[in-house]
Design a binder for these strands. Structure first.
Length: 264
DNA sequence: AAACGAATCAACCGCATGTCT
DNA sequence: CAGACATGCGGTTGATTCGTT
């Protein structure tokens, strides 16, 4: 049997999220945390699949997200970590509190890669680029002005990505638990550890961020969010009797001065 | 001011992995 | 142990924004 698609695709919305959808999702997650993402859209009253909700929360709505360009220090760290870990964006993001794997991946592809190339470094191996002329077997590529697409710029994957299994096996041991707990790729982890959420959250609030930065009100207590994430879902669901969870989704939002207008 | 191309980034897709029964 | 299912991850796409002509 093939696996079920992540959601019954029929009737589910795709594409950019509206402010109203964001509001529903945030209100729901702040009130109840999440148990299984598949149920979140249903319970929050969203016509989205759980995957989409998770992604939206992880990459955009989480209260501890920093917004805006990576600082020089962060960029340096990303480069170092990439040299160490390869394209393991989630692992890299885990070492940068308040940053998401998607954000780092995008930043890498749009900014850092170019920078490294300008510096004459191979963005994959982090070694000085070997001139294509040394590869006479591919005359067509040698004509390309942009090394981006030249094969000589793309060494065998194994050279930079860890040899299958090895790095994968080690990385979790190498990464301190604390850092892992700050993982940007896990919504629950992202808001739960007090050590990182408190620091990164304050940073995110303080950071001017991009124009569309999610401006979380100071009154959002991330420790409280932490607790919410770990709520007793069994009881919530058993009392829900299906779609109706018996809780006003926006009930708790007065506490956090929830205002989507302000965010956007 | 309009048209065009490049750059950016949010979101999607499919596969991998972990967990449960 | 195998199959089903949920979640996580990395690659890719496409809409939007920005800069240049």
């Amino acid at each position: 049997m093939g696996r079920q698609p992540c959601c019954a695709k029929v009737g589910l919305k795709k594409g950019p999220w509206t402010a109203e959808e964001d509001q529903k999702l945030v209100a729901f997650l702040l009130s109840h945390g999440h148990c299984c993402w598949r149920l979140v859209p249903k319970l929050a009253g969203l016509l989205r699949c759980g995957k989409s909700c998770r992604l939206r929360w992880t990459n955009y709505l989480r209260p501890d997200l920093k917004r805006g360009l990576l600082s020089d220090d962060e960029e340096k760290l990303v480069i170092d970590l990439h040299a160490e870990l390869g394209n393991r964006w989630s692992k890299i993001a885990a070492r940068l509190p308040g940053r998401t794997d998607n954000e780092i991946k995008n930043h890498w592809n749009t900014h850092i890669r170019k920078k490294l190339k300008k510096m004459g470094l191979d963005p994959v191996t982090h070694q000085p680029v070997v001139p294509c002329a040394t590869r006479p077997d591919d005359p067509l590529e040698n004509l390309l002005p942009d090394p981006d697409h030249a094969p000589c710029d793309e060494p065998p994957k194994a050279s930079s990505q860890e040899p299958t299994g090895s790095a994968h096996d080690n990385e979790d041991e190498e990464a301190p638990k604390q850092d892992a707990a700050c993982s940007a790729s896990s919504a629950s982890a992202a808001v739960s550890p007090s050590s990182c959420s408190s620091s990164s959250a304050s940073a995110s609030v303080a950071t001017p961020g991009g124009p569309d930065a999610v401006d979380w009100p100071d009154s959002v207590d991330l420790f409280q969010v932490d607790a919410l994430i770990d709520m007793d879902w069994a009881s919530i669901l058993s009392g829900s009797g299906g779609g109706d969870i018996g809780v006003d989704l926006f009930d708790h939002c007065s506490d956090v001065a929830f205002d989507q207008e302000v965010w956007m």
